[in-house]
Nucleic acid binder design. Structure first.
Lengths: 158, 158
DNA sequence: CAAGATTGAAAGCTCAATCTTG
DNA sequence: CAAGATTGAGCTTTCAATCTTG
């Protein structure tokens, strides 16, 4: 028994291990080099990509792989470090905008190459072009399914 | 600039998101159903697969994706819950064996189907057979590289 | 009351230091 | 002194409760 569809399990197991090993190696390199931690980098990245270099806390949390709560504290720390600043919206005073400062932009430009090199060294270097392509399309489908599930929850407790 | 080799970065990004979304969904299902947390399940799994249902703390930590420290505490909690027991080796009294109890085996058999169903639902279901195969071979290569790096560190500080 | 965001308490996880045995 | 394992301290992350505004 239990010999049915090992393919899915094998793929899952491989991803689990690859993700953890690569992530730890990349993060260790960044830390060793005195760069900002990966979580901070992720925030800088998303803000850099956003129009005006700013994003609502809500949106930021959705883009970064962290809980809303965590992003709130993270943003406070980064604001204290001068990489971003937080400001309330004029019209809807419930929303808060996290905005990149010049210092934040500088830090992002400084860290990005190291981060990209880490991905290359610890991950991409071991893959062929065809494999990269398949990984991207396949895992993007998985993500799409989860994103759809978030939009249509439908299974809360009453 | 920076338009070179987006393929590796895209694949990385897709894996990051897919891993997190799937993992959270699977874990949430397990928790909601009153099963043991994923970390406990992983320990049960590795012990089940090990000859005699037992493993040194060291070996266990290597197989599970957690630090040695964490596994030590985890094993204590699981022992307190009666799922495993810890016992010193007779010959080399430095090593400790974590051993599955009957209760632990039962819990594993109970949780396994749910876990496998979670992987299927939140991950495998979105992939073709060909994609699963490529994911497995590709990511296994990544893992092999990291395993090799661990065996031959060679880059410590003096 | 609902939505956006933050805070308090607690669990998860890791690093460095320590204990014990070979 | 080195290897196996644990412990203390501290950071990270989350859940539930709270505050504020629409």
């Amino acid at each position: 028994m239990a010999t049915r569809d090992n393919a899915g399990l094998d793929a899952w197991r491989a991803m689990l291990l690859a993700y953890n090993a690569s992530m730890r190696a990349i993060d260790a390199d960044l830390t060793r080099a005195g760069n900002v931690p990966l979580t901070w980098y992720d925030v800088l990245l998303e803000l850099s990509a956003a129009p005006g270099g700013r994003l609502q806390m809500q949106e930021l949390a959705d883009r970064v792989v962290l809980s809303r709560t965590r992003v709130s504290r993270l943003a406070d720390d980064m604001a204290k470090a001068g990489l971003i600043y937080k400001i309330r919206d004029r019209d809807d005073r419930r929303v808060v905008w996290a905005t990149l400062t010049d210092s934040g932009r500088r830090e992002f430009r400084l860290t990005a190459p190291r981060y990209l090199r880490g991905i290359e060294t610890y991950f991409s270097a071991h893959l062929t072009a065809a494999e990269k392509a398949v990984l991207t399309t396949a895992l993007t489908k998985v993500n799409a399914a989860h994103a759809a599930a978030r939009t249509v929850p439908g299974n809360e407790a009453p």
